[in-house]
Amino acid sequence: MISSDLLEEVTVELLRRAAVTLPRDVISALEKALEEETSEIARTQLRTILENVRAAADTSVPMCQDTGIPIFFVKGVCGKDVVEGIRKGVSRATAEVPLRPNAVHPITRKNEGNNLGIDMPYIHFSPGDDATVEITVLPKGAGSENMSALRMLSPTEGMKGVRSFVLDTVLNAGGRPCPPIIVGVGIGGSADIAMALSKKALLKPLDLQHPDPELRRLEEELLDALNSVGIGPMGLGGRTTALGVKIEIAHCHTASLPVGVNIQCWAARRASVRIHVDGRVEFSTEGFW
């Protein structure tokens, strides 16, 4: 039994780590982009981004003022106490890190000031083992999230339709989601499942190869194409539009082909923790794969 107090402590620390430190795989991808970028305006943007990432880590300050809404993924033992612990942790982290209070009521737009609300933080649950709980937080900013999209393709449109939709979504987003972006793609399931998969795809480190060779090729093909479009860092032109394309799939109805695209900004923040029932705690910004 993992106590609600421990979960609260761990949640505060998770949110702090996510807001302040960019995962190593994302920093490497940004550094590689700077090496390969030829446009001077684009290089200025990438240098500013990397300098900002270092300054945030050195001073323990959130790298971006949009510290997002707290989206959690919990795997393993899970009861009411986990939800309670996470909620208390979110409220405390908002004051302590500090995080920007972003959560508002969707209709009245009232802001409670603590990032709590109806189903906020949102928690995705999945089964795990009995000995541990793994919690990952993906604080998601609105600039990138607002550019996300769903299309219910006809199965006859096939993979050509999928490639076309991903390209259209990134073109429509342009400079608005703070490129270089990471593109999460969910193929299959139903409307809601495709969107959930597209967000789950963003949890994987950029350098973790997809186990399915065909999907790996599709990810590479899409990434290469997106980086030939010319949107560039911050939409100011250049060859670095995306740092990665990540795909997750699920079986779907024979008459459907849902495709979800979830766009992530360069500040692709995530942090994970594994809590053992004996109270041991392991943190990781890359997650447990």
Binding site: R163, S164, L171, E221, L222, D224, A225, S228, V229, G232
Partner: peptide, 21 residues
């Protein structure tokens, strides 16, 4: 941004060809 859009319009045919769409 308009300059970038013009570049994108120029690049798009070859991008679409790359993606076979």
């Amino acid at each position: 941004y308009a300059r970038v859009e013009a570049d994108i319009r120029r690049n798009l045919p070859s991008v679409r060809k790359k993606l076979r769409i």
